[in-house]
Design a protein around this nucleic acid. Structure first.
Length: 420
DNA sequence: TCTGGGGTCCTAGGACCC
DNA sequence: TCTGGGGTCCTAGGACCC
């Protein structure tokens, strides 16, 4: 039995926890670079503000409606997320963190002690008390059904934020009320196709013959259908699987047209990617770099090249990653464009000890690499950027825009809230 | 002027092997 | 008239998730 717990309007809720004056008011959070809307409070949703709307297009309207706007403050969200997950870990037998604001709990066996619904309310109360955040809880025998239950818990007030779908009769009543595009794993394209086949709600999807699904779609949707019927296809995951790729990419605060600036950005992203790689305790062989101009600029040529390079020996040393990344950049750089974004991707990972050394390898791993990287990571641990490689520059005129950033309430001493 | 940043999995098609 | 049968690996692209 699974419980899916997720925080209501996570990013905006994080902001209002520290701004009680904004509770009950329309609040939104915009993406990196103050690009588009990525989180809305219930009041903002009620005003009809759309998810993903470009901020610059609706700025005037937001002002008129007196909507509070915040730049993304990931340091804050990550910290509150961690607190939520720790709280869940105290109550539940097993917690699988699924995203920054969601976790699947394995609640098998709980019903022997107390009703699952009661358990759901205990979770809500505890998280609210510890973090000031409100969660929804959906309980069911499969992950997909737990998602459906969670949707219902949010959608209908009278549920009190907890829905238990362990009873199959209750599922038969609820599933027809759930539009097919709200089902986990059914996105825009698939829901459109399903609707053309006359499948409009979750019950109709659950009752579709498997061969029809396989004829028109892939095994992924077949699994979804089985899960909706109550047949578990997705296991609880005890350990987070190791990543296949690590990507660091950003849009720039303004368009870049000089090689120097691009070189700095690629160095900075390579450095950050290497840091993530070390955090995963992995080593990589392949480093790719991409950059692109705006796809929205109608009268400019769209240019989005990509190049990659390979290390002979797997490494997670920032110096190796930067060397290959800048080398790849040199192969794709072209003057005369206004670039809006770039990124560095790492792939082909190896764990410590399993790397295959090249028989004729003349590059031996760098001496003391491990120790040096450890020192750097430790220095940068609290508040990024204590030490860095020269390549990424000091000024960083291209750095992303975050003009409405809230304080680091829980991650920075100087920003601690003061009670007067 | 101005449109995020991460990830996953699956499939099809091509190159290549015997 | 007519050209096997079975694989693997890689890549690009498409779908989805948050």
């Amino acid at each position: 039995m699974f419980a899916l717990v997720d925080v209501n309007s996570f990013y905006t809720s994080c902001e209002t926890v520290f701004r009680p004056d904004l509770q009950g008011k329309p609040v939104v959070v915009v993406s990196n670079n103050d690009g588009c809307i990525i989180s809305r409070s219930a009041e903002a949703k009620a005003l009809g503000i759309k998810m993903g709307a470009p901020y610059f297009k609706i700025k005037a309207e937001l002002q008129r409606q007196q909507v509070a706007v915040f730049s993304s403050n990931y340091a804050l969200y990550a910290d509150l997320s961690h607190r939520v997950m720790m709280t869940l870990a105290e109550i539940a037998p097993a917690v699988e963190v699924y995203s920054i604001d969601e976790a699947f709990l394995n609640v098998s066996g709980v019903s022997r002690c107390l009703s699952l619904e009661t358990f759901g309310h205990q979770i809500r109360n505890r998280v609210l008390k510890h973090t000031g955040l409100t969660v929804g809880v959906g309980i069911a025998p499969t992950k997909t059904l737990a998602k459906v239950a969670n949707y219902a818990a949010k959608r209908w007030r009278k549920t009190g934020g907890v829905v238990d779908l362990s009873d199959s009769e209750r599922r038969r009543k609820l599933l027809p009320l759930v539009p097919v595009h709200e089902v986990w794993g059914v996105g825009r394209r698939i829901s459109k196709k399903l609707e053309m086949l006359g499948i409009g709600n979750a019950l109709q999807l659950a009752e579709s013959p498997t061969w029809i699904i396989r004829k028109h779609f892939s095994v992924v949707l077949e699994r979804t259908v089985r899960e909706l019927r109550g047949e578990a296809c997705l296991e609880p995951e005890e350990f987070a699987p190791t990543k296949q790729h690590i990507l660091c990419s950003r849009s720039f605060g303004h368009r870049i047209s000089t090689y120097e600036e691009m070189h700095q950005a690629v160095c900075a992203y390579a450095e950050r990617a290497a840091e993530k790689l070390r955090k995963e305790k992995q080593f990589c062989c392949v480093i790719s770099v991409f950059m692109r101009t705006s796809s929205h600029a109608a009268n400019e040529v769209f240019y989005d090249p990509q190049a990659s390079g390979r290390l002979a020996v797997p490494s997670n040393d920032t110096r190796d990653i930067i060397r290959v990344a800048t080398n790849a950049l040199d192969r794709i750089w072209k003057d005369g464009h206004r670039y809006m974004k770039a990124g560095v991707m790492l792939s082909d990972f190896y764990s410590l000890g399993v790397a295959q050394l090249n028989l004729f390898d003349e590059y031996q791993p760098r001496a003391n690499s491990n120790e040096l990287m450890q020192v750097i990571d430790k220095l940068n641990q609290s508040g990024r950027g204590t030490v860095w490689f020269a390549g990424q520059g000091i000024q960083q005129s291209w750095a992303m825009k975050r003009e409405m950033l809230s304080p680091g309430y829980t991650t920075r001493y100087s920003d601690l809230p003061v009670v007067k």
